[in-house]
Write a protein that binds this DNA or RNA. Structure first.
Lengths: 124, 124
DNA sequence: CCATCATCTGAACATCTATTCATATGTTGA
DNA sequence: TCAACATATGAATAGATGTTCAGATGATGG
């Protein structure tokens, strides 16, 4: 059994940096919403859905399923999460529900990250 | 047992939109690197590490562990992923390895997303 | 009201993932 | 070369997550 290694006499290599990082670190709440946001975008199905909505503007569930080539049930579950997180909203029109992106920040993230994917290796 | 629902006579509600979404959709490779990038940022430990590096510039593993309040082993594993994805690089100096952000796009994503976290509800 | 359709939801399953421990690697100074 | 240290890595574990199925909900037109 091993105890947390933490030498008393030489706590950190560069204490100033550790402190600085701690000071400027996102708070607990902020951190949670950050990680949640990214996690939300970290699934292929959800990213596809978001990009579809980014390009087209508004689509109903069954069309979304066709557009991203997934089962409707899968899409519906994915939309549930996206809805819960506030990334999309649904607008009911008769039997159909049309979804669209809600959040300007998410839109920017999608744009920016797509640019990243395109120029991938140019900045390494 | 249920077969994929796909009516032959009325394929889609708005065929133009489905087509448009498909045309503009990220290709398979692009999609993978997109989802991978977001997935990478979708873990609290990794996000903390990245923000620490964003703020401070460069830190060694043990200081990073202290800064994000995690075990060194945990941090080392997290850095492995970040390294593999090209988000960070390590520079060895004696026994220590100093890590820093590699990618300008990742930096922008971090900045932007943090802004998102701050103004969270203002755009809903 | 009934049948049909679009979407939603809970539960179950298999898969993936983060963390941890133990150990390995590589570096330094004595 | 050896002991001490910093970091890395493989394997094991528990916990989270995405997809799917089956059935529920809600809307429409007859």
């Amino acid at each position: 059994m091993k105890v947390r290694t933490l030498r008393v006499d030489a706590p950190y290599v560069q204490p100033e940096r550790v402190d600085l990082a701690r000071e400027r670190a996102p708070g607990p709440d902020e951190l949670i919403s950050l990680a949640q946001l990214f996690r939300l975008l970290g699934d292929p199905t959800r990213v596809r859905l978001l990009y579809a909505l980014l390009e087209v503007g508004e689509m109903c569930v069954s069309d979304l399923a066709a557009a991203v080539d997934a089962q409707e049930s899968t899409v519906s579950q994915a939309l549930r999460l996206l809805r819960a997180s506030g990334a999309v909203v649904g607008r009911r029109e008769g039997r159909l529900v049309y979804y669209r992106l809600t959040d300007a920040h998410v839109r920017m993230l999608l744009d920016l990250s797509r640019e990243h994917a395109r120029h991938e290796d140019s900045t390494r």
